[in-house]
C-alpha cells in the first residue's frame, strides 16, 4: 500500500577539517556504482572515472609547505549549468534536489560535461569491460553504462530509493540520518568515510546534522556573516550546489610572500 511520499531534499556537507585524503570514499563509490576499472591508460589519458575524487593542492615551498585535500563530487546544483544544455533532457533536476542522469536518453553530445564547472561528469569513450569473474561483483541495482553515455555521481539514488521503499512505504517510518547510517541507505562514500568528514541528510529534516549548515549558508545571508565554516565551491557562479563544504581550520597559516593569497 503506497503512502504519501515524504518530500525530501537531499544534501551533503563535507568537513574539510576532518578529511584526511585517504581515498576510502573513492573506492567505496567504485564498488557501489559499477564504475569501470581505472586502468593505467585511463590515468595517462586523464580519463579516469572518479565520481568522487580527492583533489590535492600544494601550498608554499619546503619547509613551509602544506598539502590540502578536497573531495569533489557532483554538486547537484539547483541552478545546474549542465541541465539546460542537454538537447534530449537526459539530465534534469528532480524534486529531491538531485541532479539526475537518465542513461537511456543520453545520446552523448557531451554538452553537459562542457558546461559543468566542477568537472564531475564522465563520458564513456569505451564499452566498460570487466574480467568475467569480476562481473559477479557488479551491483544489480545500478545500470552498467555503455559506450557513448555520460555518467556521474547520483548521490547513490539506488540506495535512497531502496531506503524510501523499505523504510517509508513498507514500514511507515522516515528515512533520516539514523536509518540511513545504520541500514546502509545513505551514499556509499558517506558510509565509508573513516573520519566522518562526509555527512548526508535531508535539508528539510530539522533534526538532520546537515540542515543547520544549509540554513546558515543560504542566499539571504552574506558570506561573511555566516556563523559556521560553510561555503560552496565556486559560489560566485550561483549554481547553488546541494553540497556544502566546511572550511579547513589552519592553525599555523603559512607566511606567504607579498602578493600571494591564502586559500
Amino acid at each position: 500500500m503506497a503512502t504519501e511520499r515524504v518530500n525530501h531534499k537531499w544534501g551533503m556537507v563535507i568537513d574539510l577539517d576532518r578529511c584526511t585524503g585517504c581515498q576510502a570514499c573513492v573506492v567505496a563509490c567504485h564498488a557501489e556504482n559499477n564504475v569501470p576499472i581505472n586502468t593505467q591508460d585511463r590515468f595517462l589519458q586523464h580519463r579516469a572515472y572518479e565520481w568522487i575524487r580527492i583533489e590535492r593542492y600544494w601550498e608554499g615551498e619546503f619547509p613551509n609547505v602544506k598539502a590540502r585535500f578536497l573531495p569533489v563530487l557532483c554538486q547537484h546544483c539547483e541552478n545546474a549549468p549542465c541541465e539546460p544544455v542537454c538537447p534530449v533532457y537526459a539530465t534534469y533536476h528532480n524534486d529531491q534536489g538531485l541532479n539526475v542522469q537518465i542513461y537511456n536518453r543520453c545520446v552523448g553530445t557531451r554538452y553537459c560535461i562542457n558546461n559543468c564547472p566542477y568537472q564531475v561528469r564522465f563520458f564513456n569513450w569505451w564499452e566498460p569491460q570487466w574480467p568475467a569473474t569480476l562481473r559477479n561483483q557488479l551491483n544489480p541495482d545500478v545500470t552498467v553504462r555503455s559506450r557513448g553515455i555520460m555518467e556521474k555521481c547520483t548521490f547513490c539514488i539506488q540506495r535512497l530509493r531502496r531506503g524510501e521503499l523499505t523504510v517509508e512505504r513498507q514500514e511507515g517510518g522516515r528515512l533520516d540520518d539514523k536509518t540511513m547510517q545504520e541500514r546502509n541507505f545513505g551514499p556509499a562514500c558517506v558510509s565509508a568515510c573513516p573520519t566522518n568528514a562526509l555527512m548526508f541528510g535531508d535539508q528539510r529534516d530539522p533534526k538532520s546534522a546537515i540542515s543547520p549548515y544549509f540554513a546558515d549558508a543560504n542566499e539571504h545571508v552574506h558570506e561573511e556573516d555566516r556563523k559556521t565554516r560553510a561555503y560552496r565551491l565556486l559560489e560566485e557562479m550561483n549554481t547553488k550546489p546541494n553540497v556544502i563544504y566546511l572550511k579547513k581550520v589552519d592553525q599555523y597559516p603559512l607566511k606567504l610572500k607579498q602578493g600571494e593569497q591564502n586559500g
Partner: peptide, 16 residues
C-alpha cells in the same frame, strides 16, 4: 597520476 585531471578550485581556509 590523477593530478592535473581537472582544474583547480577554491579551498576554504579559516584563519587561526
Amino acid at each position: 597520476k590523477f593530478e592535473g585531471s581537472s582544474p583547480a578550485r577554491e579551498i576554504g581556509l579559516t584563519p587561526s
